[in-house]
Computed example of a mutant assay.
Amino acid sequence: MLARVQALQPLFRNNAEAARTERKVPSENIQALQDAGFFLALQPARWGGAEVDPQCFFQMQMAIAEACMSTAWASGIVAVHAFQLALMDPRAQEDVWGDDIHTRVSSSYAPMGKVEPVEGGFRFSGRWGWSSGCDHCTWVLLGGILPDGTYRTFLLPKSDYRIEDTWHSMGLQGTGSNDIVVEDAFVPDYRTHKQSDGFAGTNPGVSSDSAELYHMPWAQLFIRVVSTPAIGAARDALAQYCALVKGKASGDITKLAQDTGTQMRIARARNSIEEMSSVMLSNFDTMMETLRRGEKIEIDDRILYRFQASLVIEKSIEVVDSLFSSAGGSSVFVGSQIQQRFLDIHTARAHVANNPTSFARNLGATQLGAGNGDFFV
């Protein structure tokens, strides 16, 4: 599957301008990823899925991001919803995949929903932003807080919401992260996912017979899907930088060899990129090994992994800023590839999951003996 996805990089590069212009991932990219099996990567086998390990999934997302971060961001978010749906009541899975295993779901997890409990479920209304890839989906997962203060994700079909075209952004222009509007829709109780189930591993769609993958805490996958694309984009920014510098030196490598500033930028960038990738892959290696032993992942580890995921964007910003600052005059013109990586990574920082402040405080506090204050870990 990874080889199939890597083979699509030229297509994604060729379609990058169309993604920016249309402000959404081109349908050709989506179809190519579906044909490659990407959207089935985390889907249960009983619904035609591949049940790949998370580290394999994120290697694919990084490969997509090297060619187009917008495609990686939106398609990765859409694909990870198959994992969350697998945690939900089997009736919800039947609603979505019963007629077509390729049915896609978008999301917006901010707790913007107005929730009114009624018999059999909830009346649900609200407006949510940043629903990446929503134009290619026919279902949506939306966040809301119940009157008792608990958080749930609500699953709705296209007939219960509308998309409003609001995505005019400085970067990640091709993600199509438009607004979702819901007006007094009924959501049956079985089409909701409790945050407490995702945290404690008491998900109604998971049993002792389920693959180890689905015993992974839900948050550990989602937090990585909005940071990992930056690693692939930073890797491509480094490649773009090297090409630009070689061009300025007229291909004379001896000129570059004498420039210690250039050497240090490249060395530090390469090290940071490999470090971020290695930490992410190692975390998932460790978690999957733990689950295969039939053990639970310790909360202290989950808190640490949460913080490490939140650092990826800031580390990627350091990389791309260092490279962009010395990439030369051509980098400032519209259409510059390294400029696009700069804009994309900085835009990703606006996502709440990529702000490390609260996650650093939680990690530090728990190391000093305080209780965990984050239930999305």
Rank of each mutant, 00 (worst) to 15 (best):
V25R: 01
Q34S: 12
V80P: 00
S70A: 10
S27P: 01
A18P: 00
P90I: 02
R23V: 04
L40P: 05
N15E: 15
T71W: 00
Q93P: 05
K24C: 08
F83N: 04
L85M: 14
Q93D: 08
R20F: 03
L42Y: 05
P44I: 05
I64A: 00
E17F: 14
I64L: 03
E28Y: 05
A19E: 06
V80D: 11
F58E: 06
I77L: 15
N15I: 03
F39G: 02
M62E: 13
A65L: 02
G48R: 12
A41P: 06
C56A: 12
M69Q: 15
A50S: 11
F38L: 07
L33C: 07
S70L: 02
Q84R: 14
P44E: 13
I77G: 03
F58A: 06
F57S: 09
R46T: 14
D35C: 03
A92C: 05
F58W: 08
M69T: 09
A50T: 09
T21Y: 01
V78E: 00
Q84C: 09
N29P: 00
P44H: 10
M88S: 09
Q93V: 05
K24H: 10
I77M: 13
A63V: 03
A67T: 01
E94L: 03
V52F: 03
M62R: 13
A32W: 02
S70D: 05
L87K: 15
P44Y: 08
A50M: 12
L87P: 08
M60H: 08
A79P: 03
E17T: 15
I64F: 00
W73P: 01
A18R: 09
A86K: 03
Q31N: 11
V96T: 04
D53G: 11
E51N: 10
R91D: 09
V78Q: 00
D89I: 07
F38Q: 09
S70R: 01
Q84S: 14
G48V: 09
